[in-house]
């Protein structure tokens, strides 16, 4: 099994959290279909994702998604070159449905199986905007992750900084809950932030520290203390100003650390990816920061592909396919799968 001249078609699976998704991707950059069944409404009953409920929904949806993906792409199993699947990181029970279904399809139709790191998928969603030029840097921001990933070449990933506590998306959900916004809170907080002003001047954690790590727990505590104090004295705070102040602090930390990383690691592209990459405040800030950078330009993952989806898994799977990265039928879910740290990152 190797590269061929004809178009490369991959059936990709994603089920790491609360979206069941199956896509058919041509040559890693053309979406023939991208079926996404989201469970958000279900988990909104509980104020957050309940793993067992997520697993139960995935098994309800998975083969329906396969059929829809093939039908919409107008391809059959004979046309496919490989099957790809997210095997981590994520919720183990949720991952297992995608992994089991993908392995079974690969086995049934004698197709090679490609294991994909979910975070690589998020980054490679940038391929739907333009080809990735290496070296590149990714700022990955989602509900479970906040990290800076240096990519010296295709199929290579090195973490140079990550959150020491909460992920940015997690912080959004927590302050959202304090303001009475149901999970997922990111979109509403982002909207309010645009209507308010940074009047509370929350702390910017580690902004000046000499590393590329992030921390959001201090910001979260300051936010909660401010709102509790106001409650106690019967004062009503502007949700718009709270949101604006919170978002400004998050964006300042992310943007500052990213600028510092770019100074140490000259790259052609800065890729903004992950669920929180849909945040307009963050997109706008990075765009204006990078405008004055003569060598690096910003590639924002398409808004529609910032959330979890199988199209992004197929985008990276095409690269893994060319590099001969395959798994056998023993492939298991790896809930804490991570990229390696950069060798020189101990600073």
């Amino acid at each position: 099994m190797g590269p061929t001249d004809k178009r490369n078609l991959i059936l990709a699976f994603e089920s790491s959290c609360d979206e069941t998704s199956v896509a058919v991707i041509e040559d890693g950059h053309k979406i023939l279909s991208n079926i996404v069944a989201t469970q958000i409404k279900s988990h909104q009953r509980f104020g957050g994702v309940v793993p067992e409920v997520a697993s139960r929904h995935h098994i309800e949806e998975v083969t329906l998604c396969i059929k829809d993906a093939l039908t919409e792409a107008e391809v059959g199993y004979d046309d496919l070159d490989a099957v790809a699947v997210t095997y981590g990181p994520g919720l183990v029970g949720a991952l297992l449905i995608g992994v089991t279904a993908a392995k079974t399809v690969a086995f049934a139709h004698n197709l090679p199986l490609i294991p994909v790191n979910h975070m690589a998928g998020h980054i490679y969603a940038a391929r739907y905007v333009e080809p990735i030029e290496f070296p590149a840097m990714a700022l990955l921001v989602s509900g479970g992750h906040t990290e800076l990933v240096y990519m010296p070449a295709e199929n290579e990933f090195e973490i140079i900084g990550e959150t020491r506590d909460d992920a940015a998306g997690e912080a959004y959900d927590k302050v959202g809950r304090v303001m009475g916004v149901n999970y997922p809170a990111g979109k509403t907080v982002d909207e309010w932030a645009h209507q308010g002003h940074d009047t509370f001047n929350f702390p910017r954690a580690m902004e000046k520290d000499d590393n590329f790590d992030f921390s959001f727990s201090g910001l979260k505590s300051a936010f909660i203390n401010t709102t509790h104090h106001a409650d106690q004295i019967g004062e009503t705070l502007s949700k718009q100003d709270l949101a604006a102040s919170f978002q400004q602090a998050v964006v300042d930390v992310l943007a500052e650390k990213t600028q510092r990383a770019l100074a140490d690691y000259p790259v052609h592209q800065l890729i903004l990816a992950g669920g929180v990459a849909a945040n307009h405040g963050l997109r706008d800030r990075l765009a204006s920061d990078i405008a004055s950078n003569p060598t690096t330009h910003l590639v924002k993952a398409p808004l529609k592909l910032c959330g979890d989806n199988a199209a992004m898994i197929g985008a990276f799977a095409n690269v893994a396919y060319r590099h001969g990265v395959f798994a056998d039928a023993t492939l298991n879910a790896d809930p804490s799968l991570e990229f390696d740290w950069a060798a020189d990152s101990a600073k």
């Binding site: 083969t63 396969i66 059929k67 399809v105 049934a108």
Partner: peptide, 12 residues
């Protein structure tokens, strides 16, 4: 879920 996912995916 592992047995049923395998079985229903094969059948489907």
């Amino acid at each position: 879920r592992i047995a049923v996912t395998t079985a229903k995916t094969l059948a489907s």
